[in-house]
Structures are given as structure tokens and as C-alpha cells.
């Protein structure tokens, strides 16, 4: 494929192809789309990228994305200061916010322990989390890392290092999708849901 396009086009395709979830074919399609649309449209995209890169930064407390020193959630005085929800990525904050079930604060680790990718605890925002929890005022830390091997390992690690008196550490439970049928659940999820079952009546 190399050498088929002029240098400028190839540079664009290569740059797009480095984006997550964009394969070589999609990169080519997006590149040709951008070359076909009028200059304003392409400039709008370029400006949006530049502006976002200039303005958006990590919150100094929870490391979520925001446009100020503190993100919107950290600067919201109405939220509960006693509970911290620990997630891997900013997009996980968005997912939990959509539930409207959580009114506490967040802490974004910016990844999970994954030595195969060179990510250990020191590469994550764990030191900052420990500082927040030991500073006092926190009663519960809810660990919401992904339910895969790396996420579970991170949760286990956090439960070890966050051993602070008076602080409850909890883990998001695994279970069945609401509104779905039992028979369509894969056996791993169903097995986990059985393991984490809830008592309705009785001791």
C-alpha cells in the first residue's frame, strides 16, 4: 500500500490510523472524506482538536478531564464528600454519571495495572488516591475497575493499600444486564451473578 498516495495524503492516513479503533481501511475512508468536504468543515475539525488539546486538562484532585483546575464534579459543592468512586478512565465517569445513582466524588486512575503494557501501580494515580483517603473525611471507596483480569488485579491491589481504619472498601458487583433474558446471559456472567446473589428474605 505504501507509495500509492502522495506524501500529504499518506501522512494523513497514517495519523488517522494511529487512532484507537481505526483500522487502515477506515483511516483511508476518513482521509478521503476530509479531502472531499469543503475547507471550512475540515478546519472546524482541526480547530476543535487544537482547542480541546489547549483547554482540556486533568483535574488536580480526581484526574478526570475538565477545563479548569478542578473538574465539574470536584467543584460541585452539592456532592457527597464521604464517598469516592475509583474508575480506570474518564469515560467510566461518564458511564457512572449516566446512572444518576451516584452522588459522591470520583478518582480516575488513568488505567489499570498491566505489566504487559508497562503499567504498574506507580504509573497510575494510586499515590494520589491514597493521599485523598488518608487525609480523612472519607467513609467509603467504591472500586469500579473493569471486571477483567487487569481490573480485578487493580481492585485487589487497591484493597491492600487502602487499608485505612473507618473506610469501607467495596467493589462493583458483576451481574446480569437489566431488561435482558436469563437464557441469553453468557455462563461466565451468570456464574458471577449467582456468586454475588442477594438475600431477599431469611438470614
Amino acid at each position: 500500500m505504501a507509495g500509492a498516495y502522495s506524501e500529504a495524503i499518506q501522512d494523513l492516513i497514517d495519523a488517522l490510523g494511529r487512532l484507537p479503533g481505526v483500522g487502515p481501511k477506515s483511516a483511508q475512508r476518513i482521509a478521503f472524506h476530509l479531502l472531499k468536504v469543503d475547507v471550512d468543515e475540515a478546519n472546524r475539525l482541526a480547530r476543535a482538536i487544537v482547542r480541546a488539546k489547549e483547554r482540556v486538562r486533568f483535574c488536580s484532585v480526581c484526574f478526570n478531564l475538565g477545563e479548569h483546575e478542578l473538574c465539574e464534579i470536584c467543584s460541585d459543592v452539592k456532592r457527597d464528600d464521604h464517598v469516592i468512586c475509583v474508575v480506570e478512565e474518564p469515560r467510566d465517569v461518564v458511564a457512572i454519571e449516566r446512572t444518576h445513582e451516584f452522588r459522591g466524588r470520583y478518582h480516575v486512575l488513568q488505567g489499570a495495572i498491566d505489566h504487559l503494557q508497562g503499567v504498574g501501580p506507580d504509573q497510575l494515580r494510586i499515590r494520589e488516591l491514597i493521599a485523598r483517603v488518608t487525609a480523612g473525611g472519607i467513609t467509603e471507596v467504591i472500586i469500579c475497575t473493569n471486571p477483567n483480569l487487569e481490573g480485578e488485579a487493580t481492585a485487589l491491589y487497591l484493597s491492600k493499600v487502602l487499608d485505612v481504619p473507618g473506610v469501607t472498601i467495596s467493589r462493583l458487583s458483576s451481574g446480569l444486564p437489566v431488561g435482558g433474558d436469563l437464557e441469553y446471559a453468557d455462563e461466565l456472567t451468570l456464574g458471577r451473578a449467582l456468586e454475588g446473589r442477594r438475600v431477599i428474605t431469611g438470614d
Binding site: 495495572i113 504487559l116 504498574g120 501501580p121 488485579a153 491491589y157 491492600k160
Partner: peptide, 27 residues
């Protein structure tokens, strides 16, 4: 994962590496 960690620490085990190793031992 455990082998990658063992390679990365090059024989020197600080507290955070030691706690991570505990985690992978468990898994």
C-alpha cells in the same frame, strides 16, 4: 503479567512492587 512484573523489577522489590506481586500471586 507476573513474568512481565518480575522482569521489570530486575530483582529489586520496593513496597509497591511487592504488593503488586502479592496480587498476581493471588490471581
Amino acid at each position: 503479567q507476573r513474568n512481565a512484573l518480575l522482569k521489570q523489577v530486575r530483582g529489586r522489590l520496593d513496597t509497591s512492587a511487592s504488593a503488586t506481586l502479592d496480587v498476581w500471586d493471588h490471581q
